[in-house]
């Protein structure tokens, strides 16, 4: 291919040709600094020319295939971006909460939710286990849930209540709902709670750290490999820092790195709030929610606003 076909300015094109760079392939082997010297242009210009040339040459595509084959199981960010855009999230049934979460709990990620007793951790856990089953016609994930209960807090009566409310809501929007649907894939694993067994009987704290670290990686692997959401419920503890005691999630500093997203639930006056403490792509923000008879819903008394706390 000829240099003249490149979308660059005529002055640059002239310089290229007069310096002997007539074909695009001649540009591919040249370094930016070399081009700066030969053409007497700025480095940015040289980089831009080389970028355009390598892109135009189409060698990128072939290279890409080869590069992908080099590291097994690798994916380009572009493919992942397209994949991510088509993925469906598990709704929390509280639109304010969904808003700050970017649509709900995401698959392929480990989300940790923690807060003081009675704030509604288990309620959110049960709600997610129900919501994951919403059929795909209604915008759901249509999957199964695994609920790992370490504290004996899973209440089947409560799950029934939430499930009935959820089914009613679905029928309200879709009148022609078929009664039975067959979810086949497991889409969410809820661990309620991750803390309990690690808070007792540990004399060797280094051993605890190792076990927690190993477990975190296993959960990550599970989430990625089977394209499911892992939701871990955690308790709180007090931490002494900067001269005062503060509430933080339990299991220590190194565990705080173990999850992809971290959501902290807290009381603000009479209202329950969720705060995004850590996430690779969501802004830290907080939103109110309420625990009603039907499950997790929008808080009725409030306007959606941002509150700084914790």
């Amino acid at each position: 291919m000829e240099v003249s076909s490149l979308p660059i300015s005529t002055a640059q094109r002239g310089k290229l040709i007069s310096s002997g760079y007539t074909s695009i392939s001649s540009l591919l082997s040249v370094s930016p600094s070399q081009l700066v010297q030969d053409l007497n242009i700025s480095e940015n210009e040289a980089l831009e020319i080389l970028r355009v040339a390598s892109w135009r040459s189409g060698s990128d595509k072939i290279d890409r295939e080869r590069r992908l084959s080099i590291v097994n199981g690798a994916q380009t960010a572009w493919d992942m971006l397209n994949e991510e855009e088509s993925s469906i999230r598990i709704t929390t049934s509280c639109s304010n909460l969904d808003d700050i979460l970017g649509g709900g709990i995401s698959c392929k990620e480990v989300t940790e939710i923690g807060g003081v007793p009675g704030i509604g951790k288990t309620q959110i856990g049960i709600q997610l286990a129900v919501n994951v089953q919403i059929p795909s016609d209604c915008g759901g994930v249509e999957g199964k849930a695994i609920y790992i209960d370490t504290e004996g807090s899973f209440m089947v009566e409560r799950a029934l209540q939430i499930a009935e409310a959820c089914a009613e809501d679905i029928q309200e929007y879709n009148s022609f709902q078929t009664k039975d649907f067959h979810a086949c894939h497991i889409k969410v694993v809820v661990v309620d709670s991750i803390t309990f067994h690690f808070r007792q009987d540990f004399e060797d704290m280094a051993l605890r750290t190792r076990l927690l670290g190993g477990m975190a990686l296993k959960l990550m692997n599970l989430a990625k490999k089977f394209n499911l959401a892992v939701v871990l419920l955690n308790q709180v503890t007090t931490k002494y820092s900067e001269g005062s005691f503060q509430l933080t999630l339990a299991l220590g500093d190194s565990w705080s790195h173990a999850s992809t997203n971290r959501i902290i639930l807290f009381w603000n006056g009479d209202e329950r709030y969720a705060y995004i403490d850590k996430s690779p792509y969501m802004k830290s923000a907080s939103a109110p929610y309420a625990v009603t008879q039907k499950g997790i819903r929008n808080s009725t008394s409030s306007k959606y606003k941002r509150v700084k706390l914790m």
Partner: peptide
């Protein structure tokens, strides 16, 4: 869009869990 595709295609992601 084209630049975005080119840039994103040259980032290679790999998950490692041990």
């Amino acid at each position: 869009d084209q630049i975005l595709e080119r840039v994103m295609s040259s980032i290679l992601h790999y998950s490692v869990f041990d």
